[in-house]
Design a protein around this nucleic acid. Sequence first.
DNA 1: TCCGGGTGTTGATTCAGATCAATTCCAAGA
DNA 2: TCTTGGAATTGATCTGAATCAACACCCGGA
Lengths: 234, 234
Amino acid sequence: MDKSCSNCAHRQAAEWSVLEGANVAHMDDARRSRSFLAGEAIYHEGDEATGVYCVSSGLVGIRKVDADGESVLLRLVRPGQTFGYRSLLTGTPHGVSAEVLKEGRICHVPAATVHRIAADSPALVMAFFRHLARDMAEAENKVMETVTASCRVRFLRLLVAFGGEADSDEGTRVRLELPVSRQDIASLIGVRSETMSRVIRAIENEGLAHFKGRHVDIPDARRLADESFGSLAA
Amino acid sequence: MDKSCSNCAHRQAAEWSVLEGANVAHMDDARRSRSFLAGEAIYHEGDEATGVYCVSSGLVGIRKVDADGESVLLRLVRPGQTFGYRSLLTGTPHGVSAEVLKEGRICHVPAATVHRIAADSPALVMAFFRHLARDMAEAENKVMETVTASCRVRFLRLLVAFGGEADSDEGTRVRLELPVSRQDIASLIGVRSETMSRVIRAIENEGLAHFKGRHVDIPDARRLADESFGSLAA
DNA sequence: TCCGGGTGTTGATTCAGATCAATTCCAAGA
DNA sequence: TCTTGGAATTGATCTGAATCAACACCCGGA
């Protein structure tokens, strides 16, 4: 399996899709994939970048830890997405750590290869720029949210985001699976896990959604989406 | 004044410094500068990008407003720094708004020019990538801080950041001037202005710093820096 | 089968910061 | 000079979320 990027299921999604000709071969050639178990660290804050990573399957979390040991889960990286390119391209140590949240397979493209191809293909650099721009926009949203929205609203919005990726069968009912543990969800929206529990119970009681393990059943997605639009759903 | 980028006081700082040969001339030729008064908007969220801006003098604030009208000041743009390049390069509408906080002069390089030069100079794109990467790192720090640190600590860290740019005369005493109003500082660290006042008064009472208008006098910068390192200064 | 430990839940209590409501301060304009 | 309106301060009160402390649940291993 995984013999080549060309037949990777996610080829379209990743930055590599802009590559042409010999560069595709270079990539395929230098690329190495290996499987990771949940909990394994891929790199730590402060490490030097050794290349660019690409999630083939599983789920990766980008984390940051402060001096007090407080850890925040900044974002998730899903299959088909790349990560770690920022430090590599700027030549600075990683400012965040990456860790496997759900076991899977992750490709690694060595630094030298990325640099060589980037020097030859401005389109690749541009693709990474776009990726970074999108991440930046999300980071800005996150700052806004943590400052202005209650933890309840933040959680509802996260549900909506997860739901967007899930299968919303024609009607308004949506069934989805939480990709990570509740602790991690709490960390993702910046609250304590106890608070997370209470928020979930409240939502459950109101009948907005039904939680069983990692399964979530949303009877009326529209109602939930409305609620997630800030406190005043004018 | 301001006849050319070549003799701009901030030439070294901005992304343009990587340009060579004819591209420098193209830039200089197309560039237009004009002065803005405090409070003027440069662009709004949702606007299409018309070019890249460069602060010559004064101060610019990057803001984001949510559905409820809550506004957060995300970051400041100082003389010598560029902004607005993100939307231009990705071809997406601005996700934030830019507004003049302190009157001054701002240069504008039209979209067509930037695109033409960028197509010819991969180094320019790379320079913008670096800028974005730095902003992203700061955004990540901001998320961390708003989630983990008290508003007191967040304010102290902001003071330290301002102090870093100021003149710390040989000793530990630092004298600096706040670049923006207290309301804006409150918005910058994500608290209400009332809270801001109280925090400032508390710091004043402890003798950590002395505030008079926008002037701040820090008798012992080291002590202040220590305090800013989270709640537990082990 | 009985552990053990990680994950999640629940309750009681506390506290940081928001909110509501007056003032006071101050700079620009008439 | 007086006026005026935004910026800043101050006080009283409320509340959302953290904290502290048990306890229930579930799953893999001996």
